[in-house]
Amino acid sequence: MACVNETGALTESARKLLTVIRTEAKTVEDIAKEASLPLFKVRSSVRELAENDFLFEKEPAKYMVTFLGNKRLEAME
């Protein structure tokens, strides 16, 4: 799994991605811009993070962090 490392902590790119959708649902294009990540990387990470319940589709094509995702972010602070 590319969004968490061997110890279960979020990878740097997953952390960046989840941070920009912590308070507001955003499109993959907006996430890519704000997190300075390539769009292909954001699309694949969003898919993987959603499969692992770290984010969800709050509105059509707009994603936001889940309670579990937020917990993981807090654990890294």
Binding site: M1, A2, L39, F40, K41, R43, S44, R47, E48
Partner: peptide
């Protein structure tokens, strides 16, 4: 090496 990718992830580029 960057996890699972689909070709469709590259749409728009």
């Amino acid at each position: 090496t960057h996890g699972k990718l689909k070709l469709e992830d590259y749409k728009g580029s």
